Computed example of a mutant assay.
Amino acid sequence: MNPILSIIVPCYNSEATLEATLKSILNQEYQEWEAIIVNDGSEDDLESIALKYIKKDSRFLYFKKENGGLGSARNYGIEKAKGKFIVPLDSDNQIEKEFTKEAISIFKDNSNIGVVYGNAEYYGEKSGIWEVGPFDLNRMLAHNYIDACAIYKKSLWEQVGGYDENMPHQGHEDWSFWIALISIKVKFYYLRKITFKYYVSSKSMINNFTEDMVLENQDYIISKYSRLYHAHYRTSFKYRRELRENFLNNLKSRKFVVDLICDTFFSFKLFNSKLDEF
């Protein structure tokens, strides 16, 4: 039977962490899955770990390719995926056992949902909880705050052409992908719980980005989705202008002015005028 969920595990020199990642896949509650391990031209011995899990469970599949970067490895795996839903899982992260089961249930109950994501728990050189927060277009356009480890419909990946393999520097391809989904009005669902464990290392790719590298990727993304950015700017500018006009009109009301003074200096209102938007 074809799996419902395809877990894509791109690997590059991740011998030290891969086993824990694959073990977390085995330990999840949801069982209708396949896990596609993509060796992206690694120079270490991660292959022996991958082959061990293939022997352990036939739902693990293993492929090797020349090094092409993270976006390329994800696309390679997703092209071979049979599942209706996709979850990219980096080879140093660990999926929580309840996440996929709950996400699939959310998709079944809400046909308009395209992406399900949640919080993460740091491990490695950092501990604590990464509380991602609800979907916010302003935040997403400014920077990526939703990790690639989220579950989405494969049809959406097909619709936007997958992960961008032509960015100046690999490392923000998941940000570009989320914006591509936003541009076709995909709905994101925030699951308010820990959905995976996120490995933190000073040697990771993203932590070795220079400021110039980040700016080059930002320029590339803004240029690629310029229509979305311009449309959002116009909408935001119009909204702020309307707020200012309403504020100036309200200043003609004595009750509003009294409430504004009381709320600013004494944190209470006499007349309960609507101040929150200002």
Rank of each mutant, 00 (worst) to 15 (best):
I4N: 04
I4M: 14
L5G: 05
I8V: 12
V9A: 04
C11T: 11
Y12V: 15
S14W: 13
E15V: 01
E15M: 07
A16R: 14
T17H: 07
T21N: 12
L22N: 11
S24I: 05
E29P: 02
E32K: 14
A35F: 00
N39D: 05
E43C: 12
D44Y: 11
D45G: 10
A50I: 00
K52M: 10
I54K: 15
K55N: 09
F63E: 12
E66S: 14
G69N: 08
L70E: 12
R74H: 14
R74Y: 13
Y76V: 04
G77T: 04
E79N: 15
K80W: 07
G83V: 04
F85Q: 00
I86D: 01
V87L: 15
L89V: 08
D92K: 03
N93K: 06
E96M: 13
E102L: 08
E102N: 15
I106M: 08
N110P: 00
V116N: 02
G118Q: 01
E121P: 05
E121N: 11
Y122G: 02
Y122S: 04
E125L: 09
S127P: 00
G128C: 03
G128M: 06
I129D: 14
D136L: 00
M140V: 07
L141A: 06
H143R: 13
D147Q: 14
D147Y: 13
A148R: 09
C149K: 00
Y152A: 05
Y152M: 08
K154L: 03
K154M: 02
K154F: 03
Y163S: 08
D164Y: 06
E165N: 03
P168S: 12
H169E: 08
H169K: 14
Q170G: 08
G171D: 08
W175P: 09
S176Q: 13
L181Y: 04
I182M: 15
I184E: 10
V186P: 08
K187Q: 10
K187R: 11
F188S: 06
F188C: 03
L191F: 03
R192H: 12
R192G: 10
T195K: 05
K197V: 03
E211T: 10
L215W: 12
Q218K: 15
I221A: 01
I222P: 01
S223A: 11
S223H: 14
Y225Q: 09
L228T: 04
A231H: 10
Y233H: 11
T235F: 12
S236A: 10
K238A: 08
Y239Q: 13
R244K: 15
E245S: 11
N246L: 00
L248K: 13
N249S: 12
N250D: 04
N250E: 03
N250M: 06
K252C: 00
S253F: 02
K255N: 04
K255C: 03
I261F: 11
I261S: 02
T264W: 01
F268K: 01
K269A: 01
D276T: 04
E277Q: 13
